[in-house]
């Protein structure tokens, strides 16, 4: 599964904008990303949004089997 990491998370945490990981769901993925970049999990809950195969989701428990791409992007603040 391709993980596309959008700015600023690529440089802020991972030093790359592409990773290849297998994860059962987004909780699992966030855990793996946190192992790569300690501290990521804490901020993921407040700053990150995930799109699974092009669809933004808030359900981190949804299974990632058969998913080809997860995009990690910043949550955009609104007024």
């Amino acid at each position: 599964m391709r993980i596309v990491i959008m700015p600023p998370f690529d440089r802020e945490f991972f030093g790359t904008d592409r990773l290849d990981l297998a994860a059962t769901n987004l909780f699992d993925l966030v855990g793996q990303l946190d192992a790569l970049a300690p501290g990521f999990a804490t901020i993921a809950q407040v700053r990150a949004t995930f799109a699974i195969d092009g669809v933004v989701t808030h359900d981190w428990a949804s299974p990632l089997a058969n998913v080809t791409e997860v995009i990690l992007l910043p949550r955009v603040g609104g007024g």
């Binding site: 809950q45 407040v46 609104g78």
Partner: peptide, 9 residues
């Protein structure tokens, strides 16, 4: 501690 406030943090 970074907290979500609305959609920003």
């Amino acid at each position: 501690l970074i907290m979500a406030v609305g959609e920003s943090a």
